[in-house]
Amino acid sequence: MKGHIFQLAKNIPANRLWLVFLRVGISSVAIIHFAALQGDFNDLFSQDSFVSPDISDALKNQLLPSFYSISHVTSKIFGIGYSALLLTVRIVYPIALLSVLVGFLTRFSALLSLLLQLLILNSMGLYTYGADVFTTIGLFYCSVFPVGKDASLDHLLFKKPVITTHLNKFLLIFRIHICLIYFFSGFEKLLGYNWRNGESMWKMVHAYNVLPSVDLDFLARTPLFLIAGWLVIALEMLYPLFINITKTRRTWLWLVVSFHIAIAFFMGLYFFSALMIVFNLTAYYIPFISHKNNSDGPANPDAFHDGPLALFI
């Protein structure tokens, strides 16, 4: 099985492998993330939830519908009530994500997944966090980029020709987005004095620690928290620079991946971290994997080396 997957990956031209990785990575994490909610699904969405749907609906984004607002319409027209609608979405959303995963009607499935994900988020506005935003970003790119052209059912069934002219542009846009995310995240931390004096790291260790057995209080008199705070700021703010320099790219990539692994295990933000790792590997690791049977000509993974604006000219 492992050998088969490896063979499949080898058959994909190097400059398109990142698209497959993005599709599979985002859809896999989104499926597992949605599955993780199933045990308490009714406590979040049903009429008997912590915040009942009518109350939750009052704070929803008015641009998009929620389960509650749609159920008003569907119950009048089709006789489909709130519970039936909830069940429908509960079944259709993972199917749509599975279709993205296997690359079946990929663009349509990604768009459907995106719409359903936004509907779910709009129905649980008070419970949303960073991982949800990054799932939206991932599904949006799966809807825009030609992610279903390789290693997909679409490729097997429809045999559509692959137009590779703009792939480096797509990669560049994706990379710029990731770089901006890290830069602004670091910059915002820099503005808060608590990140500069170590207090934020100290607070994080206590208020967001899901590993109570790990007690770092004995380090309070050392400058560790101060240094850690500055390291996080530097890692994020300097990301756009060092990730795009060939010599430092690999080091910075593994530093950032390690940083997200630490966040996952220390703060319990497993899905947020998984998504960020998928984004990083998609942008700065997978495009640099090259293999001999590259039928599509050489990849241009160093999109930035031509100058960021070169691809737009």
């Binding site: 960073g130 939206t136 608590n194």
Partner: peptide, 27 residues
Amino acid sequence: NVPMLYYGKFSGTESGYGFFAPNIKSG
């Protein structure tokens, strides 16, 4: 404005990415 708000919502670009910043909220 409505078009931009829709675009931001669908592309995940409607808000900034400064998580846990400028300060970490109390639990």
